[in-house]
Nucleic acid binder design. Structure first.
Lengths: 169, 169
DNA sequence: CTGATTGTTCAATTCAATTTGAACAATCAA
DNA sequence: TTGATTGTTCAAATTGAATTGAACAATCAG
């Protein structure tokens, strides 16, 4: 009479499902893995903090995924770990950071800045390579392009703190 | 005496290779495929416009990849197609757009705005779902979270034109 | 100590996005 | 028309990133 397994009590309700989907979509735009969106999304719409096991059961993801996902979210400053009982309890629970400023700041710091930095280094090397071009006309062209690249990087560096500032209001 | 094939004349020289790598890296941050970075990068550092076949040979990518890559770059406004002889020549050549403003504008228009739009729609549906929660306390919590999401979207919408403006200087 | 609980690590697998390549259009010259 | 050239499309193959899951710490209670 019951050919299908009973629905798990852990399943997400429709609202939770929708919210999680919004975040799954959102993080894809940012180039982050789906599990990150799932985890943050569920935390975001849950009234009480959730444990790693809660996430594993409700999202039906592996412990490994949950653990790694939480680690990334922590380094992004997007979730914080709390221990009940004034920090004496062993089990950790997680809450989302919900201030846009904080989220954007963490993302910029962890995902954008490192690329800007390594970009600067590479462009220095490019500038040297361009100077070695024999033909003066072509050398001029190459230097022009390299310095444009450099200009882009500077613009990026300038705009990031501004972004954080604007989004912090 | 020559156990390895002679190096293809089409290969990128070291400077070109470096530039292409910078762009490959750059577009990955933006969530775009490697081929996009390769194509744009080579155009960026080439003095003369290149044809599709030039790209295929020098980057050693398939015609399909080159064709699709160029299409995306055109919709982003990052390359323009030119036909010699006042537009009478059949073969198309491509040049990169090198103004940061234009590049950022195209990216925002094609890759960011659509997500913001669809996000808004989803959030409207979320707001309805939240109103259906029976428990008043929990309903309050849910509405709070949904309206925070809405706030984020608005901030995003506000910040994009500002970004374009700042980078256009 | 032993067993239970909580969380991490990482090699192997899975999955999704990109790339390929062959077939197909479209345009032109002879 | 035929053949050559240029470019597009899309199913299939490839590749690389995310996920899994089992083994391994680490911490605690009894």
């Amino acid at each position: 009479m019951h050919p299908l397994p009973a629905p798990s009590l852990d399943e997400l309700n429709p609202l939770e499902r929708q919210v999680v989907d919004v975040f799954v979509d959102g993080v894809r735009v940012l180039g982050l893995p789906r599990s990150i969106g799932e985890i943050y999304g569920l935390l975001f719409i849950s009234r009480a903090p959730l444990s790693l096991d809660d996430l594993v059961h409700r999202l039906q993801i592996s412990k490994g995924s949950a653990s790694q996902g939480l680690r990334l979210l922590k380094t992004l400053g997007a979730v914080s770990e709390i221990h009940a009982n004034g920090g004496t309890e062993r089990r950790a629970y997680y809450e989302p950071a919900v201030e846009l400023k904080r989220l954007v700041g963490g993302f910029i710091r962890e995902q954008i800045r490192p690329h800007l930095e390594s970009g600067k280094t590479k462009i220095k090397r490019l500038a040297e390579a361009a100077r070695e071009e024999a033909d003066p006309e072509h050398r001029k062209f190459l230097s022009g392009r390299v310095s444009r690249l450099d200009q882009w990087m500077r613009s990026g560096g300038k705009v990031l703190p501004l972004l954080q500032k604007i989004l912090g209001e």
